[in-house]
Each structure stands twice: as structure tokens, then as C-alpha cells.
Simulated assay, not measured.
Amino acid sequence: MRTLYVPNTPIHITYRLYGSIPNLPLQKLHSSRRLQRLRLEEQYPQVRRRADPQLREEYLEACRATEIDHYLNYDRMLDAAMTGPRYLRGSSAKRIVLDSWHHLARQHNLRIYAISVMDNHVHVLLENRSADQLVSLVELLRNHKKYTATQLNRLHGTRGRRVWAEKEYTRTVRRGGFEHVLWYVLNNPVKAGLTDEPLSWVGNWWADELYEAFILSRVA
């Protein structure tokens, strides 16, 4: 189910450039997830899940594991892509994406914890700071993509070029999992083989407030 609003707990968003993954491998990846879900439905029939809370929890945990496995395979495909657009390559392009997120954070009272701008996709870790103001994730991403597409096309002299893929992945960070997700985001260029030092990667940004609690221990 697509997340409609930015929650008051951390959420990890991943979105990519249009054409960054070829259609056939992407279709195979989605088909594999659907098959896994069908197998889980057979293994944990709905009638039995309703009658047995423990079985229902096992089913939900298996579904979460399937979704995580699907996402990790998706992210690996982006990191390993040998063809496709690289519109986000270079410090000027990455700065457009970073600046847009910081502008949106000020505008909508968001707390951004970390961003990693790769050459063909982006990771963002953020949450809604307001307890009484709903922030539409759909509108947020729509505005971000529209603005950054215009600026990237202006940077590259390619007016009207389609920049972003339509869909994104969103995952709410589970209790106790914040540090793991934070370093997953910041280590993205490391696992892609682009750098050995995530804190100096030109596309990485993290909130100053995280330094002592989560960053210093890794670099000390």
C-alpha cells in the first residue's frame, strides 16, 4: 500500500530516474514478489490467520521480510545498472536535489535526517515534525520531482526531457531500526563501489544533530 502522508516517525524514501532500470528485469522483479506473496497466502490461509493471532503475526512478519528482500533486490539493480540515465552525476546536479529537499523541509516543517543522491536514484530519511499538520507525500514528491526535473534539464540543456520514474518505495522505520536505516542510506555510495568514505561523498547529507549519537562512533 502506498504511503499517503509523511508520518510523525522516520520514513525511508527511495526514488529513481526514469529508465534507470530496464522494463524486463523490473517486471521479473515485480513478478517474483507477487509469486512470493501468493505462496505466503497458501502457507497462511486467511481463515486460519483470523482464528490464530500468532499465525497472523508470523504471516505479517513473513510479508515484511518479503518486502524487504524485494526492495534490496530493487536497490541492487539500481547500483549495478551499467546503462541508463545518469542525470544526477556531478556536484551541481546533486546540489539541486539536496537544496530542493531542504526547501521542502522548511516549507512543510519536516525533519530530514539524511539524504544520499546517487547518479540514478535518491534515498531520503525524514519525518513530519508537526503533530497536527498532515503533509501529503504524494504532493511532496510531485512538487520535488517537478522542480528538480526543470532544474536538471536547465543544467543539461535538455528542455522537456522526462527525468523521474513515477513510483517510489517508502518504508516506515521500525522501532529500534533507525541507526541501521541511517547507515544504509549513507553507505549507499560505498556498496555501489563509488567511494570508500560515505561521509565525504558529494551526494550525502546528514543532520548535524545526528553526529554525536550516530556518526562519531563510526568515524572515531
Rank of each mutant, 00 (worst) to 15 (best):
M1W: 11
R2I: 14
R2H: 14
P7F: 00
H12A: 01
T14W: 06
T14K: 05
Y15H: 13
L17P: 02
S20A: 14
L26E: 09
L26W: 05
K28S: 05
Q36L: 07
Q36K: 09
L40G: 00
Q46S: 13
R50A: 06
A51H: 10
Q54S: 13
E57V: 03
E57D: 08
E58N: 11
L60K: 14
L60T: 11
T66Y: 01
T66G: 01
I68Q: 08
Y71N: 13
L72T: 09
N73R: 13
M77L: 15
M77N: 10
L78T: 03
A81H: 01
M82P: 02
G84D: 15
Y87N: 10
S92H: 13
A93K: 06
A93D: 08
R95L: 01
V97E: 12
D99Y: 00
W101K: 08
W101E: 12
H103A: 11
R106V: 01
H108N: 07
R111M: 03
R111G: 01
I112W: 12
I115N: 04
N120D: 12
N120T: 05
H121T: 05
V122R: 02
N128C: 05
A131T: 09
A131W: 08
Q133I: 01
S136H: 05
L137H: 04
L137A: 03
E139K: 09
L140F: 04
H144Q: 02
T150D: 08
L155Q: 06
T158C: 07
R162K: 14
V163G: 07
Y169D: 04
T172G: 02
T172Y: 02
R174E: 15
L182F: 03
Y184N: 12
L186S: 15
A192I: 07
L194H: 10
L194I: 12
D196T: 12
D196S: 07
S200Q: 13
S200D: 11
W201T: 07
V202D: 14
W205C: 06
Y211K: 07
E212G: 06
I215F: 00
S217A: 01
A220L: 08
